[in-house]
Amino acid sequence: MASMGEFMPIVILLGVAALVCAAMVTLSWVLGPKKVTPYKASPYECGVEPSGTARERFPIKFYLVAMLFILFDIEVVFLWSWLTVFKNPGMGSPETDLAFQWFSFCAVMVYMVLWIIGDAYVLRVNALAWDEAPEIHEAKFGAPEAPAATPIPDAALQPAGGGK
């Protein structure tokens, strides 16, 4: 019933889409003028002289999110095959249907309990906190020394000029 022939229009769609995208990108390359100057060709940094490369280290949080995504997403992917058969298993008779539903339901509930434990753990250790996770640092490395209060003098808060 379902054959690869069903996907043929999708392949055509992907081809046409790729063609349109390539045309869009290439046309502007072909049509526009080209007058390269050193300033145009430098990276944009608000008009200030660009400083160094952008290929630098970036926060580990992004890796952490990506790793958690892969874990949780795969847990969801495992469910997809079950989703379509759960409501109407079509096992032959109503009794076998119900038996299958009951068994698979229990199995998935156990799976979801594990899922929830995992999620609660991730939340508990502040793996997704995007500001500092203070108590982890405090537990492992001792509480950071609180900076001494440095009251700003009133004069510093006055506007520099243009006031009444």
Partner: peptide, 29 residues
């Protein structure tokens, strides 16, 4: 379409060129 298509010196030319096409592609698909 008729504006200058600036390619800065420091970019990775191949990726820089095809990235917009890759961004548009899934929208159609």
């Amino acid at each position: 379409f008729l504006k200058e298509d600036i390619t800065p010196d420091a970019v990775d030319r191949k990726l820089y060129f095809i990235a917009p096409a890759i961004a548009l592609f899934p929208a159609f698909a």
